[in-house]
Design a protein around this nucleic acid. Structure first.
Length: 145
DNA sequence: CATATGACGATGC
DNA sequence: CGCATCGCCATAT
């Protein structure tokens, strides 16, 4: 309800962006939000995925939207309940993504290796934009622990 | 309508 | 580097 046009655009944009994540790759909520032009709304990205319909009748659903490829910036798999994290981790392993498990039952993913950082979405290139101001991405050392 | 919460992220200390 | 806090806003009660 109350899905205003703006919210509708946001939901679709998030689902659409997530679909752009290549197989065997992952990205963060914040990055999705940033790509959509709303770097201050990483939570809304999660909200969209949280409300991602499981019904294949919907255009965007749990089956065609690789929500599992979206994790937090810390490279950890967020979970809203016990077991859900394992489900996402298992789904990622099926794509060849190495998931490390911690003694705390937390799941970590090497963002430096599987991180997906495109300058922009191929769909947004005609929506708006003037020029990417983040020329330096990846390349070289990012976080050498 | 108001209050509390959350699949996050950046900042301050 | 870890903890606390703010920002954001859709959902739930």
């Amino acid at each position: 309800m109350a899905r205003t046009d703006e919210a509708e655009w946001w939901f679709n944009a998030v689902y659409e962006a997530v679909q752009q994540i290549p197989h065997g790759k992952v990205t963060s909520y914040g990055h999705i939000a940033r790509l959509l032009g709303c770097p201050q709304r990483p939570r809304q990205v999660g909200i969209c995925l949280k409300h991602l319909p499981s019904s294949t009748e919907e255009f965007y659903n749990n089956d065609n939207v690789p929500w599992q490829r979206v994790i937090n910036s810390k490279g950890m798999i967020s979970h809203r309940g016990p077991g859900s994290a394992a489900r996402q981790a298992a789904a990622l392993e099926l794509e060849g993504i190495t998931v490390r498990s911690d003694a705390m039952n937390e799941f970590y993913i090497d963002m430096a290796q599987f991180g997906w950082f495109p300058d922009r979405l191929p769909n947004e290139e005609n929506e708006e934009e003037g020029g990417p101001e983040t020329p330096d991405v990846g390349d070289g050392d990012r976080d050498q622990g």
